[in-house]
Design a protein around this nucleic acid. Structure first.
Length: 490
RNA sequence: GCGGGAGUAGCUCAGCGGUAGAGCAUCUCGUUGCCAACGAGAAGGUCGCCGGUUCGACUCCGGUCUCCCGCUCCA
């Protein structure tokens, strides 16, 4: 049998829509860029993945507790975290080389060059203009004017073909207070660009009230927002997305060991999620590419149709965040070790995974097209635990006797699983419909099962290999649970 | 952001200067005896949006939005 895997994102986008997994946001208005909505099946899938993570990261550990912090936070949080400085730059593009530069840096370099050429007076004058940029028109307009007036050329191409200067605000800004004018920066609050900061600012609260001793972790799942420069590739890079993060607080000196431990543990989680090992790898960041807060960092990557991409990041954030918040808030965020009788600011190992990217990974990894008797079967062979619908229940044909039992089975199983009753179309069509939705089990009620002696029996058909077993109705749950547990990716 | 491609039914797409089509999907009725393949019928589109040319625009032109590919960027 020939089997084809997912080769293009387009195919997945079509399937995701037609099978009610994922829709583009505000589609009837032409769509909103890089924002997506989850449909009925997508919502279930996402919830199952979210639960799978939450169970692993909290329930399975005595020393990891949950948190649900607000999306709005005090603006000073972002000063302390470095997000405000780091991601608010005026940028300009060289149209010839398509290179992008920081407009203020171009001018600074130009000033430095003037000085080294002995043109100190001219340099001072420009420095003055640079320092007061924003006082004439906007910052962008003023910087642009300087670049044009001075005929500053692109460092690499030597071209003088600039776009306008644009401010890149990677954080979404909004106003706090219903009567805000919208122009007063004092009212500005930001939509959090990462959930991590909610954990750091609650570190003291949790330590004081949740009876945790270092080492311990705080886990959180929530939305984050980033004004991506280039937001593309379906739900891989969205402006509004959901993170699942755990910050693990350790004694300095034990951080490297803990980092290795969590990296390994997280990779293992992806395998248990049902992702094929050959499609997963870890990818350490070279030192010169580390984020401003990190000492060690690695991606856990999946081989999407668009190539190897980061699903999760594991970072050693050191004591950067807690120290920053200590300095900016003036509050002590230290831990006192009773045994050793010493105080320290804990180091933090972060595991941060994108939920939407995980949904996309699960869909990509599960997708198969198989040739069956000259026909193509599209099937999502995902971990049954993640499947939006667990069981389809069908009467073989529309006869009271079969329908009655099928309804009864549906009601019985509903207590434990997401069940779908379907009697429309041929039986084969109903199986294939469920294959595309990833439903792992289909139960069919037939005459052989209800007309024979003894307890009623039904057939249960398995999504992955299309084989069937005949089982008594009373054993259905047992069989489903057993198959669900023993499932392995192909 | 730059360059290229695309936008017509839920999905995949055809079409043409004269007021819209197919396959699949959906719904109803019939049929049905285990893998999308039967019969009859129905519903569904201001052809992405705005403007221009024209007697007339889904079709030509301009703008705009969205998506895809490449480059660039990225916490």
């Amino acid at each position: 049998m020939s089997v084809t895997e997912l080769d293009s994102l387009d195919t997945l986008v079509s399937l995701a829509k037609s099978r009610a997994f994922i829709y583009q946001s505000s589609e009837i208005y032409g769509g909103l860029g890089a924002v997506y909505d989850y449909g009925p099946l997508g919502t279930e899938l996402k919830r199952n993945i979210r639960d799978f993570w939450w169970k692993e990261m909290t329930q399975r550990h005595d020393n990891i507790v949950g948190l649900d912090s607000a999306i709005f936070m005090h603006p000073k949080v972002w000063e302390a975290s470095g997000h405000l400085d780091g991601f608010n730059d005026p940028m300009i593009d060289d149209k010839q080389s398509n290179k992008r530069y920081r407009a203020d840096m171009l001018i600074e370099n130009h000033i430095a060059k003037l000085r080294s050429d002995g043109k100190a007076e001219k340099a001072d004058e420009l420095q003055e203009r640079l320092d007061t940029a924003g006082s004439r028109e906007g910052v962008c307009e003023d910087l642009y004017q300087i670049i044009i007036d001075e005929e500053i050329r692109a460092p690499e191409s030597g071209a003088f073909e600039w776009t306008e200067v644009r401010q890149f605000n990677l954080m979404f800004k909004t106003q706090f207070g219903a009567t805000s004018s919208g122009r007063d920066d004092d009212d500005a609050v930001y939509l959090r660009p990462e959930t991590a900061q909610g954990i750091f600012v609650n570190f003291k609260n949790v330590m004081d009230t949740a009876r945790q001793q270092v080492p311990f972790g705080i886990a959180q799942i929530g939305k984050a927002f980033r004004n991506e420069v280039v937001a593309r590739q379906f739900v891989f890079r969205m402006r509004e997305f959901e993170q699942m993060e755990m910050q693990y607080f350790v004694e300095p000196g034990t951080d490297e060991e803990s980092y290795d431990h969590w990296l390994k543990k997280r990779l293992d989680w992806h395998k248990r999620l049902g992702i094929r090992e050959s499609k997963l790898r870890t990818h350490p960041h070279p030192e010169d590419k580390l984020a401003h807060y990190a000492e060690q960092a690695a991606d856990i990557q999946y081989e999407y149709p668009i190539g190897w991409q980061e699903v999760e990041g594991v970072h050693n954030r050191t004591d950067f965040d807690l120290s920053q918040h200590m300095e900016h808030s003036g509050k002590k965020l230290e831990y006192y070790d009773q045994q050793k009788q010493e105080k320290y600011v804990p180091y933090v190992i972060e595991t941060s995974i994108g939920l939407d990217r995980t949904v996309m990974m699960v869909l990509c990894d599960a997708y198969r097209e198989e040739e069956v008797d000259g026909d193509t079967r599209t099937v999502l062979k995902m971990n049954p635990q993640l499947a939006p619908t667990k069981v389809g229940v069908f009467p073989l044909i529309k006869k009271d006797k079969l329908q009655d039992l099928a309804h009864k089975i549906t009601d019985d199983l509903r207590e434990d699983y997401n069940v779908l009753y379907d009697e429309s179309g041929s039986i084969g069509k109903r199986y294939r419909r469920q294959d595309e939705a990833g439903t792992p089990f289909c139960i069919t009620v037939d005459f052989d099962g209800v007309e024979s002696e003894g307890e009623d029996t039904v057939t249960i058909r398995y999504r992955d290999d299309m084989t069937q077993d005949r089982v008594p109705v009373s054993r259905l749950k047992e069989v489903i649970d057993e198959k669900m547990k023993s499932w392995k990716p192909e």
